[in-house]
Design a protein around this nucleic acid. Structure first.
Lengths: 343, 343
DNA sequence: CTGAAAGCGCTTACAG
DNA sequence: CTGAAAGCGCTTACAG
């Protein structure tokens, strides 16, 4: 069992300062107009000397208010934080909460272990956020579980299901991103487009795919579009899938990474075979995170406002907690084409 | 103010099931041998129907046990999670805690705002962990603040200060990493070594520097070693610093990135100037995280067990909570040279 | 300006 | 096998 520790309590402060716990509590909570300057100073000194830190559990029990938000990242990889989309959202989210005095409970889970997640089993947060992955069915099941918590819900990078009234969806315009990148490569002459996608389903990747498909459909019959499923998003898996595809079908005009990592894997694959990019094969990515600056030729991609999504999502969520309801049901942030030399 | 919500409580369960709260509590906590099968089933059904989720605040108040651990990452960049060392440690740490039913409270802070951190001001965790950065003085101040919390402390990637008796240091052998990489480049003919370091101080980078210096000292007077401070770890800042250095001093034999990101920035810098790597200038990194696979030539680096550090750190910390004291004061994980084609 | 007291939702020692 | 009751550390409506 975890050892108990006797920490300083308000009543100890009160005793030492010769005041009631009411007054001690008022000092701790900055209701300073309720007492004389002398009392206040005496209590503050003692709090500092005794190193008083209020017990958050007691406070939240009394107030039915936890001052903490849970973030669930559903990713089958234990390295769920290797994905820069996840970490950028998390960074923005965490920073905003931190500045506003809210704690962030982070939990990475697999679909198979959703039911074990302590964030879902125990009542310890004011609201729950999720970065989902998985099939539509798996996500539906997840959202049902979230609904049972009866907490406000924030969903990153997926739509709000209709059975979740007290929820907000925050995402980037991935459909537009797909359109932009498809327009770009087609305009530059590509006629055979291959999109590389991970076997794990991410709603954002589907959106990108739909965006590409939309532009392809509008481009007439001489433009061809295929999707290749690559296993994990790792360099090795992606390159294996590319090799297998090319052995069978030959080189397409362009490999479009479902995200930057997969685009870069395609780029490296080409360079290792002494293929020239973009002369022999073009390559693109999605999201434009920092590490795309590592590769040459510069990757053509579409920049993601992931950090901003995290930050604005947190802001809207805290507003929801303060006001009792979400003012809006959806926030879609814009993306921007970032032309490189790879296509 | 945050709205209250009336959630299902144990006493509601007890009433509905026609048992006492004692029995309801026993069911909730799996003490099933204390009641008849019929009672148990009745209570369990009602808990499921009413969607009962125990109030963790109340439990922790009663038990003086929070089942949650705080992780503080001190990094002056708001994108503190862009650093793969941080995210890999975090992933391992978070996964281990999650599987063992502990919540993880994540908080990224700057040195200037340490005193505002809710993890330090409020009593809401069983233990506190930190990934520190900053000068020795800044870190000392941080550790003093941690000591005041009177909680067990886990320090990643830095030593335990002697005034923190109830603390554990978990790090990788960065000194050895520096030695390995220096031995390698010197053995391959490098005589003028330049280490690129960020202006923000990380204890691990200092260790790497000491390791290199140690090998350089032992190599006789014809080996020269310098350090170039690069601003942030970003590609742009690193490349600016490199350009400035080369304009003044000419090309060294090898640019040693203080981490992979800076090594890759040097690599890209060279390629952009049509310099051949390693023929014209050699380049190395540290840590060998996934994205080093993105670049060609393959980066010579030293692999980091960051995920393992997070995981083992979490394991030792939970053991500490269960047993009342740390069995050891330090855990140092090994690193391994990963030869590439860049040096 | 200050304080006594109730009660938030749990767990557990104790009594039956 | 089951339950009544105390108490964890807070906040706040209320009384003085």
């Amino acid at each position: 069992m975890v050892a108990k520790r006797a920490r300083t309590t308000l009543s100890q402060i009160a005793t030492a300062a010769n005041v009631s716990v009411t007054t001690a509590s008022n000092v701790a909570n900055g209701r300073l107009e309720l007492m004389s300057a002398a009392t206040r100073e005496r209590v503050e000194t003692i709090m500092r000397d005794l190193n008083y830190r209020p017990n958050e559990g007691a406070r939240s029990l009394r107030l039915s208010q936890r001052r903490s938000i849970g973030l669930i990242i559903v990713d089958d990889s234990p390295r769920f934080l290797a994905d820069p989309m996840n970490t950028n959202i998390l960074a923005g989210f965490s920073n905003y909460l931190s500045v506003n005095g809210f704690a962030l409970l982070l939990c990475g889970i697999h679909h198979a272990t959703i039911d074990d997640a302590h964030l879902l089993r125990r009542d310890q947060t004011d609201a729950l956020c999720v970065i989902p992955s998985g099939s539509a069915t798996e996500r539906r099941r997840l959202y049902r579980r979230l609904k049972e918590t009866e907490q406000p819900i924030l969903i990153f990078q997926d739509d709000r299901p209709s059975f979740l009234p007290d929820a907000l969806s925050v995402r980037q315009n991935d459909r537009l991103a797909g359109e932009r990148i498809a327009e770009r490569v087609i305009q530059r002459g590509a006629r055979h487009l291959v999109l590389l996608v991970p076997s794990q389903h991410w709603p954002a990747v589907t959106e990108r795919q739909l965006g590409i498909d939309h532009v392809v459909q509008a481009s007439g019959p001489d433009v061809r579009f295929e999707t290749v499923v690559c296993g994990s998003e790792s360099v090795a898996d992606t390159q294996t899938a590319i090799s297998r595809y090319v052995d069978r079908e030959g080189l397409p005009d362009v490999f479009m990474g479902g995200n930057d990592q997969m685009g870069i894997a395609a780029l490296t694959w080409a360079l290792d075979r002494h293929l020239s990019v973009p002369a022999d094969v073009r390559v693109t990515g999605f999201n434009g995170f920092e590490f795309t600056q590592y590769v040459r030729p510069r990757l053509t991609t579409v920049t993601s406002p992931a950090y901003e999504m995290g930050k604005q999502g947190a802001a809207l969520l805290l507003k929801r907690l303060a006001r009792g309801q979400f003012d809006e049901r959806q926030l879609v942030l814009d993306v921007e084409l970032q032309p490189g030399d790879s296509d």
